[in-house]
Design a protein around this nucleic acid. Sequence first.
DNA 1: TATTGTTATACTCTATAACTATA
DNA 2: TATAGTTATAGAGTATAACAATA
Lengths: 170, 170
Amino acid sequence: MNADPVASGCTDVLRDDLGWALGVVFRSYARAASAAFSDVPGGPRGYQVLAAAARSQPGSQQELAGHLGVDRTVMTYLLDDLERAGLIERRPDPADRRARRIAATGRGQDLLGDLDERLRAAEAGVLGGLGAEGDRAAFRELLARLASHVNALDPVSDACSLAPGATASP
Amino acid sequence: MNADPVASGCTDVLRDDLGWALGVVFRSYARAASAAFSDVPGGPRGYQVLAAAARSQPGSQQELAGHLGVDRTVMTYLLDDLERAGLIERRPDPADRRARRIAATGRGQDLLGDLDERLRAAEAGVLGGLGAEGDRAAFRELLARLASHVNALDPVSDACSLAPGATASP
DNA sequence: TATTGTTATACTCTATAACTATA
DNA sequence: TATAGTTATAGAGTATAACAATA
């Protein structure tokens, strides 16, 4: 039987359009992640900030913002919400009194473990379209490699900005 | 400064986050495509509409909107701009006088050939992060397969709604 | 003077609702 | 009654600009 319209000779004009495919997958992922993180301030982005705060030294707010692809003003509001929810804290940076250091609270770290599981489930749902586990792994690897490369090229967001000590930027 | 928790090499905390990687690649692509299509009304989306109008029978505006992941009201404005630029036409549907058929004008078709080349260049720039041609092809194939599957599952946009037309298969 | 973070404002994009003309 | 398309309006999200504190 031909349950799959595409496989059954139904060729999509835009199927070879990388932009269309990226858009479809991105939107699908965004929907799944937003649903999974509906109770987290800032949704998926709130999770990313929380994860960065808990698992790395997210230098300044600006570096974190650049890394996540948002404006620094957006980061302010995002952190406001996360701080109000008691998930992160803004601590003074002893080295630079203009800057703040973002740290996850105990409650934030507890929640993070739960969120990680939800994320895994959401990702599995999206990647389920790739039948074989090998394909899923290959897609993840290629996408991660591509993202790292793109991120390294982009002057706005430095791939190493969240892992200080390894590389220096010009 | 504190020690690097991730340590050894510049490992990115979010590198394994599918959402982060998708976001980085998607934004990178969106920037490249927007720059390439800066003179096209609606930008990248205008191109997609034009391509669908020229190379398939994009049933109704609503079907086309669903396929592109936008609201039907957005499609109205988009088509307004494209029509004003003389790239597409709204023709009455003989079978249903409520509906309109979207068709590319001669000028639209001429422009489309040029846009295709620009798109190829933009895509090559983004995928350049994957060094080997085999990897690029593999990524495209996996992404297209995933998008088709996601699209088929989503009741809003039917993968076959644009199909029965002359399709250019590279 | 340049930079970090904040605030207020304005802009863009998108969705909601109401309307028409058809079915 | 329901649907395709349009229009006007409201909302979310984002960016711009000005500001205070600090380098």
